[in-house]
Each structure stands twice: as structure tokens, then as C-alpha cells.
Design a protein around this nucleic acid. Structure first.
Length: 329
DNA sequence: AACTCGGGGCC
DNA sequence: GGCCCAGAGTT
């Protein structure tokens, strides 16, 4: 339940299911998760996004192992102290798994309550109070899940089906004809664009081509994931930025460099445009802690962001091996 | 309260 | 092309 609730943070149920199955196969209990290398954890998580969730799960499992005797806490208050467990997740796990009478306010419940009480701008404290009053003392978990399910299936954001809503008679927004404006949507500013040059460095080997992957910072955007050397344009042309990224890792690129199709990746708060260029050569950094030469098999085992995974696929599919030694000199 | 933090499905 | 998703952590 803990794992599924964390996976479901800002992620749709249908997207979570295959990840949940793979995760439980690989990390069947807290001990297995705590003992696993972070690289393995991120690889199983790859594609789900919000990678801090995976890092926090890993840390939390080690807290449970090292300080809590291997047992996940039972109460919402104690669960709340684990990294990655906020108000919602603590309430969901405690009420559903342990029968504690605490609310669990997710985006669905927020919308349902805002409409029930015709509240345009529900604050966290207002929501907590309303939800706490509503939780059934006998079946708190079912009650919380029922509210969430109602929001996910009937009281949906755009075209709610009030005609088949069991709470329609008690819904103030329905009575007032404001269902469509509750809760009031907050408009977000247009996403700024950020462009990057990406260096796909190929080292031809008898066993096949190898690509240089480096590890980004441990936290922040895509923390802990592997990527091709990447630098912001910063006023340069894409190809020059990619060459600069290569130099960061001691690789002097020759002129040219074969362009691959740009990859657009929309993140929460900006639109990323990645311009990959392929260079083939023999020089490059010695493999170390944060730089590896990876063939197709090794590539499968590294955790990459969606954008870099797509670039890797494109590079291999474009036949990097045939370009060996043919770059412009 | 405002930011940061992914990725994809849907309209 | 914008919206939304069984939110959490940081500032």
C-alpha cells in the first residue's frame, strides 16, 4: 500500500500498475528495498517521473530497517516522518491499511469537497477540517477511497456526471450551478523553453558501438539518472553547445557531428528541447564513477530520463556503428 | 504561498 | 496545445 500510494502521487492508476508489479517482483519487502543499490531502484522507476519519490522510498526503507526494527509505522503521525510521506500518503496508508480515523485528501477529494461546499478556493486547512468531519469512524479507509473514487469516476474535472452522483442532493455547487467553476482553476504561466545541446559520443568496439553516459547530480531535476553530456545553449548554436558538453568530459570533438532529430520533453515548469549530435572517435574519459561507456546491453541496465532514452534509441537505430571513423575531420 | 519536480493520456 | 493526474519537499 505504501509503495502503491507513493507511485500514485501525481500519476494515473493505469500508468502505475505495470511499475507496481515490476517493483514488487524486484523489491518484495522493505529489507530488499533497503539493501538494493539506488541505481537498481531508479532503473525500475525509470519513466514514472518525479524521481525524488524513488530516492525517498529507498531512504525511507533504510530508516525502517535501521531505526524502526524493520516494521513500517502504523499511525499516520509516525508515517508522516518518513521521507516522501506527506499528509495525503500518511492518511491513506493509515486509514486504509490500519483503520485509523484520519482523512486522505488528494486532488480528487479536493475537487469533490470544493463542489460539495461550493468553495472556490479550498485551502489545505479548510480541506483537512471538512475531510476530518466526513471520515466514517467505522470504515475510514473505505470512506476515503470512496471519496477519491467518486472524484476519479463521476465528479471529474471537466464533464462531471452529476446525474449519477450519489451526493448530488447534498452538493451546494450543483444547487448553485457552479459545478464547472469549482474549484477555481489557477492559470499557470506559459511554459518557458530551455534548449540543450547533447553530445552522443560513440566509441567503436569490435563487440559493437559504445555510447558515453554520465551521471547527473544526485538531486534536483532527474537526480541520479544517467544522461548523455548535455549543456544549455547559452547563446551558442545547438551543435556548439553539444561540443561544449563533450569537452566538459575531456572529449575534443572534431568539426561536424551528425545531427539527430531534436527531442521535445515537457516538464512541469519548462519545455525542454534537446538537440543531439553524434561524434565517433577513440578518445574519451576513462570509465569511472560517473562516466561509463555503454553498449546496448549495458544501456538497458542504466536509468535514463525519457528524453535521453529516446535519444539513445534514435542513435542506435540510426546505425552509429556504420558511422565509425567517418565523422568529418 | 510559491517553486521545483516527469511523463503521458486525453480532449 | 493546454489540462490533469490517489503530492512532497524546499524556500
Amino acid at each position: 500500500m505504501w509503495i502503491s500510494e507513493v507511485m500514485l502521487q501525481q500519476t494515473r492508476v493505469e500508468a502505475v500498475i505495470p511499475y507496481y508489479l515490476a517493483w514488487m517482483e524486484r523489491f518484495p519487502d522493505v529489507a530488499a528495498l533497503a539493501a538494493a543499490p539506488l541505481d537498481d531502484v531508479l532503473r525500475v522507476w525509470e519513466g514514472l517521473g518525479y524521481y525524488a519519490r524513488a530516492r525517498n522510498l529507498h531512504r525511507a526503507a533504510q530508516v525502517v530497517r535501521d531505526r524502526l526494527g524493520g516494521e513500517l509505522p502504523s499511525t499516520a503521525a509516525a508515517l508522516r516522518d518518513l521521507p516522501g510521506v506527506g499528509e495525503y500518503t500518511a492518511g491513506a496508508v493509515a486509514s486504509i491499511a490500519r483503520g485509523e480515523r484520519v482523512p486522505a485528501v488528494d486532488g480528487n477529494v479536493r475537487r469533490v469537497l470544493a463542489r460539495m461546499f461550493d468553495e472556490p478556493d479550498p485551502t489545505p486547512s479548510w480541506l483537512r477540517e471538512r475531510a476530518t468531519e466526513l471520515v466514517d469512524p467505522v470504515r475510514p479507509g473505505d470512506c476515503n477511497q470512496a471519496l477519491m473514487e467518486l472524484g476519479a469516476t463521476v465528479c471529474v474535472p471537466r464533464t462531471p456526471e452529476c446525474a449519477r452522483c450519489p451526493l448530488a442532493d447534498d452538493c451546494l455547487a450543483r444547487r448553485n450551478g457552479t459545478v464547472g467553476e469549482r474549484p477555481r482553476p489557477k492559470r499557470r504561466a506559459a511554459l518557458p523553453e530551455r534548449e540543450f545541446g547533447v553530445a552522443v559520443l560513440v566509441r567503436p568496439k569490435k563487440s559493437g558501438p559504445e555510447l558515453l553516459l554520465v551521471r547527473g547530480p544526485e538531486d534536483g531535476l532527474l537526480g541520479g539518472l544517467w544522461q548523455f553530456p548535455t549543456e544549455p545553449l547559452a547563446g551558442d548554436a545547438p551543435r556548439a553547445a553539444a561540443a561544449r558538453a563533450a569537452r566538459t568530459f575531456g572529449v575534443a570533438t572534431r568539426r561536424g557531428g551528425r545531427a539527430l532529430p531534436a527531442r521535445v520533453q515537457v516538464y512541469s515548469h519548462f519545455r525542454g528541447i534537446y538537440h543531439p549530435f553524434v561524434w565517433t572517435g577513440k578518445d574519451g574519459p576513462a570509465p569511472g564513477g560517473d562516466a561509463v561507456w555503454a553498449g546496448p546491453a549495458k544501456l538497458e541496465r542504466l536509468a535514463l530520463s525519457a528524453a535521453h532514452r529516446a535519444i539513445a534509441r534514435a542513435a542506435l537505430a540510426s546505425g552509429v556503428q556504420r558511422t565509425a571513423g567517418t565523422s568529418q575531420g
